[in-house]
């Protein structure tokens, strides 16, 4: 029982607890805050796996930017308290079936197919080294330049789309 495993179990419990708290909380703000905690736990997982850059990016992007916007919208709309929502017919059965399929797939992958030994909880060699960031940048801008640029254009289109959709029509009022 090494210390990594103990840390992993404690963190996993925290992660599951915060995820459950997010789902079960009746107050949207509490849900959002639980989700932030969950993201923070996942970031610590990345640190344990020896990938500090991904951990920091996780916190900056998810906890720092996206969830702040979520909280902002929740508070702005005053939608903290959920009204008892309408349940889709047979929602329980569909959800249960899908969950069963997911669990079955995971069990299949872990047991029958087998995982390559030492792949879980083993830090990737390259991610740990000092040159990792440079390597990643090189890969992104040499080998994967086209996908990278396409992604950026996609994001730009999404931004313009959001502005167009929310812009108020001025015609006719003047």
């Amino acid at each position: 029982m090494n210390i990594d495993l103990i840390l992993f179990i404690i963190l996993a419990l925290v992660a599951i607890a915060t995820a459950l708290g997010m789902l079960l909380s009746r107050n949207a703000v509490y849900s959002a805050l639980f989700l932030v905690l969950n993201f923070a736990t996942v970031a610590v997982f990345y640190l344990l796996l020896g990938a500090p850059f991904i951990a920091m990016a996780q916190i900056t992007v998810y906890a720092g930017a996206i969830m702040v916007l979520f909280l902002f919208v929740i508070m702005l709309l005053g939608a903290e308290q959920l009204a008892p929502s309408k349940v889709i017919p047979a929602q329980k059965w569909v959800a249960g079936g899908l969950a069963f399929i997911l669990v079955a797939e995971t069990v299949y992958l872990l047991t029958v197919r087998g995982v390559p030994a030492g792949n879980i909880l083993q830090p990737a060699e390259s991610a740990n080294s000092l040159g990792f960031l440079q390597q990643m940048g090189m890969m992104l801008f040499n080998e994967y330049l086209l996908p990278f640029e396409i992604t950026s254009i996609l994001l730009l289109v999404a931004m313009v789309g959001a502005i167009v959709l929310t812009k108020q029509e001025k015609g006719g009022q003047k």
Binding site: V29, L33, V36, P52, F53, M56, A57, I59, T60, A63, G64, A65, V68, L71, F72, M75, L130, L133
Partner: peptide, 25 residues
């Protein structure tokens, strides 16, 4: 002296807003 020092600054600065938002709400 971590090799992602600047990103560490960025990530901590980006969570700093939570306290104020939580207090306000």
């Amino acid at each position: 002296d971590i090799n992602v020092g600047v990103i560490y600054l960025m990530s901590i600065a980006s969570i700093a807003v939570y306290g104020i938002v939580m207090a306000g709400w």
